[in-house]
């Protein structure tokens, strides 16, 4: 456990020692801020209009602002993840620092979980930028807190899942660009899976649809905590990290 924390801390230091962490946080903050602005503007306009018409429509901050924003954030995450994970192990392989890790009395799983944990904390920091905007809603409105928390939990689980896949891909190459590119492609693929199969009802489509990482976000966005989705994300994380440990082991045999 101490090793996991040690490696996690080191990864975070590396992220924050380079501009990458700040850049990702700034860009995400900017994009999310823009989306937030559009969503609230429309919301306010709509509520004025319905008041002027004299017939008040039922309005809900959670449903009309937060839910689409969470969906927006989950899409942006597809772009963030490759940039976070591409260096994780690929860089250590290229510079040879992997030899330090693999000749120290540290277990493979400690290295992998430590690195993945570091990536998740950075990802959480990036997501944290959106809280500035969400906090405003709480200051001047009365949204429900629980669906917001569940939504963020969903974002974290989805992120953890994609980050685990990214960690695996980063283990298989020395080249950061390739690691990033392939991760990006895989993220997109998982995203698109849900498009192709949304209206099919065959078994194959159902399975493919189930595998799409994005579809499992829907419930979280609604503020519904379904154990089915949690189990899906956790098992995907476990599977990806397991694959990573196999890939690490194969470094030894092939190197």
């Amino acid at each position: 456990m101490t090793h996991i924390l040690l490696i996690c801390k080191k990864e975070l230091k590396s992220y924050f020692a380079s501009p990458i962490a700040y850049l990702l946080m700034a860009f995400f903050g900017l994009l999310f801020g823009f989306a937030f602005y559009t969503a609230t503007r429309d919301f306010v306009r709509f509520s004025f209009q319905s008041q002027m018409m004299g017939q008040a429509q039922p309005m809900n901050v959670n449903e009309q602002i937060i839910r689409p924003l969470l969906g927006f954030a989950s899409t942006i995450a597809l772009f963030l993840v490759p940039m976070i994970t591409m260096r994780l192990i690929a860089e250590e392989k290229r510079t040879g620092t992997i030899e330090l890790l693999m000749t120290s009395p540290v277990k493979d799983y400690e290295i992998i979980i430590g690195k993945w944990f570091g990536a998740i904390v950075l990802y959480a920091c990036i997501l944290g930028m959106s809280m500035i905007n969400i906090a405003m809603l709480f200051l001047w409105g009365k949204p429900d807190l629980k669906p917001v928390l569940i939504g963020y939990l969903g974002l974290l689980l989805q992120g953890g899942c994609l980050l685990a896949i990214g960690t695996f891909i980063s283990t298989t190459t020395k080249n950061q660009i390739i690691a990033g590119g392939v991760t990006f492609f895989v993220c997109l693929l998982f995203w698109l899976l849900s498009w192709f199969t949304a209206f099919d009802s065959g078994v194959v489509s159902q399975v493919i649809n189930y595998l799409s990482i994005v579809t499992h976000m829907d419930n979280f966005q609604k503020g519904v905590l379904d154990s089915k989705d949690v189990v899906f994300y956790l098992s995907m994380i476990f599977f990806s990290l397991f694959m990573t440990s196999r890939a690490m082991d194969s470094l030894r045999w092939r190197a």
Binding site: K10, K13, S14, A17, S18, T95, G96, T97, I98, E99, L100, T103
Partner: peptide, 15 residues
């Protein structure tokens, strides 16, 4: 029980 210095020292330039 082993201290190992690989051919290229395993150093992190940002540390």
């Amino acid at each position: 029980r082993i201290g190992y210095l690989p051919e290229t020292p395993p150093l992190y330039p940002e540390m």
